[in-house]
């Protein structure tokens, strides 16, 4: 367990800001205690500071997780955001997509979002921007990347993709082994 290096911080914050923009600082400056990011075995954890100190008692080999895992650093130094970060991204997301009930299931099984399943979309989302995906009753389902801007979505035909799938809550059962 160690703090992030400058390079790691840069690639991590770059990725995170695609989804929540400058709201990152809200994650670091919280009224209910000080939180920090720590790297442990290539995973980045978002953890309360006193919790982090107590976790220091656990040897590196035996520590599996603490606080919330945001994702992992790949071997090439890029950051890979995981579904476990959803709880902290959903409230701060800048761009959102709402899915019709019929398309919920598809997305949760790992498919991209098509125009036919699109319920609502945040105004002025530009192409390739990070979006958080919601169901119509405001349940966060995952996140992805907008394949088309809001303008283009308006007159696209029903079968075109409007958002690429990146992570969804179905991974908790599909892919539990790989979460850590």
């Amino acid at each position: 367990m160690r703090p992030l290096t400058d390079e790691e911080t840069k690639s991590f914050f770059d990725k995170l800001s695609k989804y929540i923009g400058e709201n990152i600082k809200l994650l670091l400056e919280r009224p209910d205690g000080s939180y920090c990011f720590r790297l442990h075995r290539d995973r980045i954890f978002y953890v309360r500071e006193d919790l982090m100190k107590k976790a220091g008692n656990i040897s590196r080999k035996n520590l599996l997780s603490m606080g919330t895992c945001f994702g992992k650093m790949t071997k090439t130094g890029k950051f890979h955001l995981q579904i476990t970060a959803l709880d902290f991204m959903a409230p701060y997301a800048k761009h959102k997509i709402w899915l019709k009930p019929s398309a919920e299931q598809q997305f949760v099984y790992g498919h991209h979002v098509m125009k036919s399943g699109l319920g609502r979309i945040t105004e002025n989302t530009s192409q390739y921007e990070g979006v958080v995906v919601y169901s119509m009753n405001d349940l966060p389902l995952g996140f992805g990347v907008a394949a088309k801007s809001t303008q283009d979505c308006r007159h696209a035909d029903p079968m075109t993709l409007v958002a690429f799938h990146q992570a969804d809550i179905g991974e908790y059962i599909r892919n539990e082994e790989a979460l850590l």
């Binding site: 656990i58 599996l64 603490m66």
Partner: peptide
Amino acid sequence: ITNTVICNY
């Protein structure tokens, strides 16, 4: 849940 440390001893 955010207040949990998971370990393997």
